[in-house]
Amino acid sequence: MKNISIIAIALLMLIGSIFTGCESMKNANNTQKGAGIGAVSGALIGGILGNNLGKGGKGALGAVLGGAVGGVVGGVIGNKMDKQAREIDAVLPGAEVVRVGEGIKLVLNENAVRFDTNKSTLTATAKANLDKLIPVFQEYPDTNITIYGYTDSTGSAEYNLKLSGERAASVRNYLVKKGLVSSRFSETGLGIADPIATNDTAEGRSQNRRVEFAITANEKMIQDAKSEVKN
């Protein structure tokens, strides 16, 4: 899983110790203590990753940061997302799993989800890797998942936008066909936007041909978190 800098860890430890020492935290239950620290650390991590990875724009990072609930409730949600992120990382170590704020940004590059040139049909390798994610998504049903398709800059922007949308739809359709609830998913193609590497080299173009997931809390998870905090 993507590492957080040593400076960030030190700051989180400092904030955690401050919260733990507060009189209000002494009187709180364990859930509220953990959620309170999680809320602050989640916000800090979100800020750090937001600065390091860009503002997120229309893509997965922007969706995760934009869907934040905040406060103690957000800390409870963040704790639940921590567990899911670890499981995703365990079943698909080749993916990039970024825990940010109250959600997860999951990047599946060509090593995980590969398409043939100018095609939107999933390859056997892509299906096998998506199959590894399905049990995790089933274990954590109270999330919304937005799928973003990207391409490199080869070809026209208009063509790539269409192709990226078709590829994102192929991923969604496959996961739904395998039994996941369709209402959890949405998809969009972003074409050549937001490259994560240079398009001047074959290696860079390969990195840009990717699929990203934004995994955020649905309404049920939010309401459950609010109830947990009250109790």
Rank of each mutant, 00 (worst) to 15 (best):
V97Q: 04
K230S: 15
A35Y: 01
S206K: 10
I147K: 09
V181M: 10
D131V: 12
C22W: 12
G66P: 13
A126E: 06
K58V: 11
K230C: 09
E212Q: 08
N109I: 07
I145H: 00
N129F: 07
N52P: 02
T201F: 06
D82H: 10
A63K: 15
L133S: 05
K58D: 14
I37W: 00
L180V: 09
N109M: 11
P195G: 07
T198G: 06
R99E: 10
L65E: 04
A112K: 05
N231G: 14
A202S: 13
L175G: 01
I145L: 11
D194Q: 12
Y174Q: 09
K162R: 12
S5Q: 05
G191F: 08
L61I: 13
N27I: 08
A90T: 13
K105H: 06
G189E: 06
M81P: 00
R172P: 03
K132D: 11
N29S: 06
P93V: 10
K127W: 06
K80A: 10
I192M: 09
I88L: 15
I215K: 03
R167A: 01
Q138S: 14
E23M: 06
A157D: 15
D116W: 03
D194M: 13
Y174A: 02
G165C: 07
Q138T: 14
P135N: 12
N208W: 00
K33E: 04
I37F: 03
I147S: 02
M25S: 15
L106I: 06
A193Y: 04
T123R: 11
L130P: 07
L108H: 12
K230I: 15
L14S: 10
K83I: 15
A214K: 07
I134R: 09
G179L: 10
A202N: 05
M81W: 04
P93S: 08
E212N: 07
V171H: 04
V229S: 00
I147H: 05
G179N: 11
G191I: 11
N109C: 10
K226Y: 02
D82G: 08
S182P: 05
G204C: 04
I48T: 04
S183I: 03
A128G: 09
Q138R: 15
Q223K: 15
A168G: 11
N109E: 13
V211T: 15
C22V: 09
L49T: 02
